[in-house]
Design a protein around this nucleic acid. Structure first.
Lengths: 219, 219
DNA sequence: GTAATTAGTGTACTAATAACACTATATCAT
DNA sequence: ATGATATAGTGTTATTAGTACACTAATTAC
């Protein structure tokens, strides 16, 4: 066991919760009501409780602060710059999480979290800007060879919605026919008999994510 | 700051140091001379010292236990199962590191580390088997789109050596002409005027890694 | 019933990948 | 010296994947 010359930093978790809204990748942030970085926005996060792993703690924080559970979550990176918190060495085990759109976190959480487009982020406390950038890179990387993108979609979705997710995350336009051709030949989507009608246009077929869909080579 | 109901686990670093020897991916392990897991092999690792980040600590441990420095190293994952250490909650921030072959760690380190092929690992303590598996997956993934493989090669190397590294890491054979064609069209290797002679065959040209070589799309 | 809006579809060209075998140049043995 | 051995080095063809591009279909709104 470590003696006095060893360092045992405080450990926290911080979560980068993304969603796609209006074709834009958005991240959930909470305005800090105390020092340090009072008045700045910051990622939802917190300390570990006894008996918690970092993942359990991250899931609890998401439930408490954003009212979400049972969503896609994966460990991102451990940020450990010694001066990342002015109070002393606080290492942050960070998580990347995804929710479908339509969630109104302001009504759910206790600290009034809000969605911000990653394209115009406000002033952020700590190293949270770097954490969000890293999370975005991870998401952009993994969308190419996993089905992670479907974490931002409801259980039933249209092909246009899928394409919009890819376009928002990759920040580029994709040709509709080529996109559908590739989705089709990968064969991990299951067509349902339902359609999405009520729009002022032709109804779109609804799909679900099939079984064999974790590490297929995508784009 | 956390009060008594918060958990502040002990933090350690563990390093998965790989090399390629005889066409095989090998990992450096140290036989444990104390409990827990006395007599089992384990990854080199240790506690943080005051003023260290996890990366600094990992580099120090590598220097102390394997006698290596200035090598490729990247953070891998933070393992935090509550029962991964029988003594209590000990979270491990793990690193993936690479060295060129030819290093004899047994003569360098104080605790007689040895190379083991990842294909036939001995009994390992803690969750170190899972950590090595994860490191291997990361390496296999990153070799496809980065130049990480060159971390296991000396500054000057032949194309055959490069191919052997790819074959060892990906655990499959690659066609020589197709391999060289792709390496050539990616254009991040610089031919030198030196050759590797003294073998009982035609001398091979020696190459170095060029500048623009971090995130090129490879295989 | 006509305008507006998004859903849904195929073909031709280009680029990347995969399969495949021989010649070149050194050392070694005699 | 010369022939055997061992690895270095090199092109072509066939297949597969990726890219560019424009019209018809089905619904709702007026």
């Amino acid at each position: 066991m470590p003696d006095k010359s060893f360092l045992n930093p405080t450990l926290v978790v911080d979560i980068v919760l993304f969603t796609i809204e209006d074709g834009d990748l958005k991240v959930l942030l909470i305005n800090r009501d105390g020092d340090p970085f009072k008045g700045f926005e910051a990622l939802p996060g917190g300390y570990l409780l006894a008996g918690e792993t970092t993942k359990t703690a991250a899931e609890r924080v998401l439930k408490e602060k954003a009212g979400v559970s049972d969503i896609y979550i994966e460990q991102l990176y451990t940020f450990d710059e010694l001066n990342r918190d002015p109070r002393g060495p606080v290492f942050s085990v960070t998580y990347l999480a995804l929710v479908p759109p339509g969630l109104n976190p302001e009504e759910q959480g206790t600290q009034h979290p809000k969605w911000f487009s990653v394209k115009k982020l406000p002033k952020l406390g700590f190293d949270h800007k770097a954490i969000i950038d890293y999370a975005k890179e991870r998401l952009q990387g993994k969308i190419e060879y996993t089905t992670i993108a479907f974490g931002t979609l409801p259980k039933l979705f249209t092909l246009t919605q899928v394409q919009q997710v890819y376009e928002a995350i990759l920040e580029k336009e994709i040709d509709k026919r080529n996109f559908r051709k590739k989705i089709d030949q990968l064969g991990f989507l299951k067509e349902t008999k339902q359609t999405l009608s009520g729009m002022r246009q032709r109804p779109a077929k609804l799909y679900t994510l099939g079984a064999k869909s974790k590490t297929i080579k995508l784009f």
